[in-house]
């Protein structure tokens, strides 16, 4: 019984604990984050290097990449920790977030576009 318990405890200690990084992985993550933050700020602050549409696109792509970098290098996400349940919870959350965000924007955009003329659109003056 005690042998079983010890083995169980050791196993839990080994892979049950949160995975952690090394100095190198934190520094790689940090360097990538600095780059992925600095470029969008530089593009927007330079004002006019690229068109606003392109700049917005670059900002969003860099944000997504930086979120992934943080997930991997700082939050140590992988498919194995807690038998994959952290990843399952993350995937579920991402799905709900995408539905909520796209749904809100889509519905409200159409509400706005279908407002009666003369009532003023939401970006108009009151």
């Amino acid at each position: 019984m005690s042998a079983h318990h010890d083995a169980h405890g050791a196993a839990a200690d080994h892979d049950g604990g949160a995975p952690h990084g090394t100095r190198k992985s934190y520094l790689i993550g940090f360097a990538l984050s600095v780059l992925l933050t600095a470029v969008p700020f530089a593009i927007v602050m330079a004002d006019g290097i690229v068109g606003p549409q392109t700049a917005a696109g670059i900002c969003m792509v860099f944000a997504v990449v930086q979120i992934l970098v943080h997930m991997v290098y700082f939050l140590h996400m992988n498919t194995k920790s807690e038998n994959g349940w952290t990843m399952m919870a993350l995937i579920f959350t991402v799905i709900v977030v995408v539905i909520a965000l796209t749904g809100s924007l889509w519905v409200m955009y159409h509400m706005n576009a279908n407002m009666m003329p003369g009532m003023g659109d939401m970006s108009g003056g009151m």
Partner: peptide, 21 residues
């Protein structure tokens, strides 16, 4: 680290895209 991830969304969608708009 989670708060830092949220901040990526904030500085991108609120500040950078806000100024671009």
């Amino acid at each position: 680290h989670f708060l830092d991830v949220i901040w990526i969304g904030v500085f991108t969608f609120v500040y950078l895209l806000g100024v671009l708009r």
